[in-house]
Design a protein around this nucleic acid. Structure first.
Lengths: 160, 160
DNA sequence: GATAAGATGTTATATCGTAACATCCTATAG
DNA sequence: CTATAGGATGTTACGATATAACATCTTATC
């Protein structure tokens, strides 16, 4: 299938495109996209599961870093603050964001069979939710949705 | 205002009514509503905030129990399993459920100012959400919504 | 009164997360 | 070229959350 030089092909953005986006976003906004931060984002992007902080620490060690826990948590804090990653609260674990740069409240689909986590494109449901809550007198500033169930692949397999 | 003998008055159910409901539900379903479980539910019902497991342990100690962590976690596991309580993942803390016995995915409104947690009556939004996710090939089995923002009281106060 | 299931007691430890302070790096002013 | 200031990282130590594993007790039933 398409490589990066094929500007015509329709597809979601690639790993490399996301890294380049992060790079440029940081440059534009005077943010330091340091080696640890870059590596953590790479690891999250390459994983189809959410990764725990200590798991990330192990992976960082495998590629030559010698980080203590605060290093991972600080990198994650940075990535989350600027919209490159989210925390999945049900798992105490972290995932790369699918549309960094855009304001949004994330919604996750967590497969109970294969543990994959995918982020829903949920700009629409945001507003439904907010309206709903506002109607009860609550002023929503941010909202997170986490759904557990079966992803398409695992639902196909399960005969039950 | 109304006491329990006033069957006509419209209001949400009282602490005592909820305890009686739990009692009867357990009796009907051969579940043991033991002293620790009862006390933990009482404590959650009486609190307007979510309570952490270790906070509950302290409160249990104040009333004569001498529990180690697993005791609290087991009581909570029971209450959650049978729909009397929920875990608020953003807070690593627990709240009593507002409508036990009914199948539902909870939605919480967490006030960033006063820390109050209230559960939204969200049977409707459930289905909206499920439809939305199903459309992306994911089979939702349960979903949790957690919104942060300002409760009505705190929004009124805040002049900003 | 034997037995089995569920509940609780208890110890120890795993897992997740952060406070606090030292050090380093880099940009910019003097 | 130093000085210095802010942000980033290194490091130690610990706090907070959660559970595994096994012992004991309680209760219902045979």
């Amino acid at each position: 299938m398409a490589n990066n030089t094929d500007g015509q092909t329709k597809r979601t953005s690639t790993f490399r495109e996301k890294m380049i986006f992060a790079e440029q976003y940081c440059a534009k906004n005077d943010l330091q996209f340091t080696p640890v931060r870059r590596k953590v984002l790479e690891l999250l992007l390459k994983s189809d599961r959410a990764l725990g902080a200590y798991e990330l620490l192990d992976l960082l060690r495998e590629v030559g870093f010698k980080p203590q826990p605060p290093v991972a948590y600080r990198a994650l804090e940075f990535l989350i603050k600027y919209g490159f990653a989210h925390k999945v609260e049900h798992l105490n674990a972290f995932v790369a964001c699918i549309h960094p740069g855009k304001e949004h409240s994330p919604a996750f689909m967590i497969c109970r069979s294969c543990d994959s986590v995918s982020e829903m494109d949920t700009l629409r449901s945001d507003s439904m939710l907010a309206e709903n809550l506002i109607s009860q007198g609550f002023k929503v500033e941010e909202a997170v949705i986490e759904a557990r169930g079966l992803c398409e692949a695992c639902a196909d397999v399960e005969v039950k």
